[in-house]
Design a binder for these strands. Structure first.
Lengths: 246, 246
DNA sequence: CTATTGTGTTGCGCCATGGGCAACAGCACG
DNA sequence: CGTGCTGTTGCCCATGGCGCAACACAATAG
């Protein structure tokens, strides 16, 4: 390992992807020559990339091109940027209006993952949730995603606090659907409350949740309906921005 | 190295990309835990991916997401599939009609790269050009791309045969533009002749060439105009298929 | 404000895996 | 058919990937 913090074989694999993007297709020996490595090294790097779906053989033996895996990755990258970007102005306004931290969360496997956050103006603020997976049954965003069919409940609902709801029936998913928003009251962490509302994609399905979270002494149970209503309005606007016109 | 022909560190790098595609963003320690590697290993893999543009830091320290590089790679992958796929039926017909091998070539750097090929029906046929870079001044496709502004001539035009044209003036680019097709007569290889016509993209610029090549005893200078006309018609149809309506 | 804790980053040295060699398989061409 | 080129595989060694440990940075609690 030289001065720079990198991994040579990964660098080489990326160089292969770039060559294929430039040239459309290439053979093992072409790539070996351009990378100045032995052909068996080039072959093995290609095999790894092929197994990962990032390259594929283009019909003829030994001729490789970029694979569908890169298209899939790009799809994920752009979808994320789209939702994150389009929701940003709405979240900024909601954080100001509600006075608490506002997050966007999406379903990922059985969990709920926060993809963006705007901190509220208060000095005492929740910690950073971006990129973190949270248990769906114990978060307001997760409950929304469960109630509106974007997620299925796990078989085993783990307890985090004495208030955590650990039975599917106790989650009240039908009531959430009827009401249009969900809340958690010290179910994930003691002293933490949250409210969330559903964001819909172009086809009308719920694809994300917008939530507000804060300390329970500020985000009291009495405030939940008013915050819920603000989030429902915000969620409607975000839905419109990403293509839902229902 | 175990039974399978792969590279562990590249596999891990790809796994990181998949996790980021799934989750939107992740921290070093999250990735290290999921991959079951040390955090310094995860950090180095991320550093390599970041240097290659495939991941980027999502604003907050230590939080990574997929980078624009994957979008760029996907763009290259889909553009190639599009042109290659859309031109396929036309090339099949041309190969039958002309009786020679038909190629599609695109500009790449200063060279001309063949991206697809349909062999002619003859027993004696040219070799496989797909994925190979060819010198633009010595190939019919390259001359077309030069004449119609998709490529700039290299400073030094290398000689391959006694017939190779080694001066820019000798290429006759103005005549090619006027005529609508280009030809080479034993300029790349002794015994090899070729004809090419320009393919236009949606914006009207020449983005590729469609060519027919064969042995000089079959693809004689007398045949060149007739073959040129067939290729011009074929190129027009391919252009339409990929969005050019001029 | 300080102390603590958790996470990101860097340097070092060990050893496992990446890489080159060589052989073999596959393919195209004369 | 033989030849030459390219793709693929097995082996072994040395180098580059990895984990450890220390340090830097940031957030949080008291």
């Amino acid at each position: 390992m030289g001065n720079s913090t990198t991994v040579q074989s990964v660098d080489r694999a990326i160089a292969i992807l770039e060559i294929l993007a430039r040239d459309g297709a290439a053979r093992v020996t072409d790539l070996a020559a351009e990378l100045e490595v032995h052909k068996s090294t080039a072959f093995r790097l290609l095999a790894a990339l092929e197994q990962g779906g990032l390259v594929e053989q283009s019909g003829e033996r030994g001729r490789y091109r970029l694979g569908f895996g890169v298209v899939r990755l790009a799809g994920a990258a752009t979808a994320q940027l789209d939702l994150s970007g389009q929701s940003r102005p709405v979240c900024l306004r909601l954080a100001e209006e509600i006075g608490e931290t506002v997050n966007i969360a999406v379903p990922r496997g059985g969990d709920t993952v926060n993809i963006s956050q705007v901190r509220g103006p208060a000095a005492i603020s929740g910690h950073n949730w971006v990129g973190q997976r949270t248990p769906s049954h114990a978060t307001s965003s997760g409950k929304v995603l469960l109630a509106f069919g974007a997620l299925k409940p796990a078989a085993d609902l783990e307890r985090y606090t004495p208030h955590t709801i650990t039975t599917p029936e106790g989650l009240g998913l039908a009531e959430i659907r009827e009401r249009g928003w969900a809340a958690t009251v010290e179910e994930l962490e003691m002293g933490l409350n949250a409210v969330a509302a559903p964001v819909r994609g172009a086809d009308g399905s719920v694809v994300a949740a917008v939530s507000a979270s804060g300390p329970s002494y500020r985000l009291t149970p009495e405030r939940l309906p008013e915050v819920g209503a603000a989030l429902v309005a915000g969620a409607r606007e975000i839905s419109r921005r990403i293509g839902y016109y229902g």
